[in-house]
Design a protein around this nucleic acid. Structure first.
Lengths: 183, 183
DNA sequence: GAGGCCATGTAACATGTTACATGATTGT
DNA sequence: ACAATCATGTAACATGTTACATGGCCTC
């Protein structure tokens, strides 16, 4: 349940409405913690009920502006230093790799090539994002760059792995790889 | 819904019961596609109902042994070459990084150090796994090694990033980093 | 006054986790 | 006969996604 902490964190920067927060999730946090509109509005109500945020202003169109409370800030700080709990790591790609011997080498290579392209494309988008961030200068920006660097390294790693893996497929078909139907 | 394809893939190797498959998920697929007991039994019934697997033997203790059908194999092969659909990338760690200026540098460094240790420890476990795989020789093993290599590279990358990120924190506090409370 | 954006909420559905429940068989 | 393991299933709960529904405000 980090979603609520994402909301709290954004609200520390400045008070905001659900609508504002939704836009922030779609920009700043899109690569880190995506969330949908229905999740946000629901969570905000729960946060208010729990006293972690308060409605500090009401604007036109039923707009409710939320602000973090003392308790909310405390909760956020506690979460920040809490030990990490391992998230389940599911990878459809690796599952496919696992069953590659049911496909032809050509098909398997196509899957890896697709991933390589996706990783490269995503890397490119992150590079653009980094360029955009260079002109900006806010408190979230410095940390954003550190998070972004993770993405850059990850996509790099993925691209390189995909190339390497494709190379493995053709290699020594008599020993390293055997059709499962022949096993 | 790759879970069903994981089941199909395992059943291609050999017919198995839900119980057998559960053990396979806890070993072979633990790092790739974890699943719980209730998920497996439910999915197997649905697969049988859809005609993708069939019950080809019944043993003691109500044991039902499943085998992939023609249709199941076709479904699996189609999935294998289907274009990847991007999975949502949520990272609690990066979310914390995003809000690091709410913590002291010391606290932030502790979070990164913890991640570095986790990555290193996981890397070690994967290395052990690789050693174990060296003695084995099956059709799933060759592919397993390719998937494993992904894990090794990923944990390496994570370890290095965590070190780098910790270095960023102390650096040039007047320009690169500013307390949010001072912003 | 019409279209677009601001703004919030609910409903339906799919997925995932944990715990509970039951019972057969095997080995000692 | 007792414990461990094999074996399957259901229930309760939490989470997440998509679509639906409503209406106010602003600008042209």
């Amino acid at each position: 349940m980090s979603r609520r902490h994402a909301l709290l964190g954004l609200l520390v920067d400045r008070p905001a409405s659900g609508y504002d927060l939704l836009k922030l999730f779609d920009t700043s946090l899109a690569h880190v913690w995506p969330a949908t509109q229905s999740q946000l509005y629901g969570e905000l109500n729960r946060l208010a009920e729990a006293g972690l945020v308060g409605v500090t202003a009401e604007g036109p169109r039923r707009r409710k502006e939320y602000t973090v409370t003392e308790r909310g800030l405390r909760e956020l700080r506690e979460w920040l230093v809490a030990p990490a709990q391992r998230q389940p790591r599911r990878s459809e790609l690796l599952l496919k790799v696992f069953f590659f011997d049911l496909a032809t080498d050509e098909q398997a290579r196509a899957v890896l090539a697709e991933r390589e392209e996706l990783a490269t494309a995503y890397h490119g988008r992150l590079m653009e994002l980094r360029t955009e961030l260079e002109s900006e200068d806010g408190p979230l920006t410095a940390n954003g760059r550190i998070a972004l660097e993770y993405g850059l390294r990850r996509t790099d790693m993925e691209r390189e792995w995909a190339r390497w893996a494709a190379g493995q497929l053709g290699e020594a078909p008599s020993t390293a790889r055997r059709r499962r139907s022949a096993g």
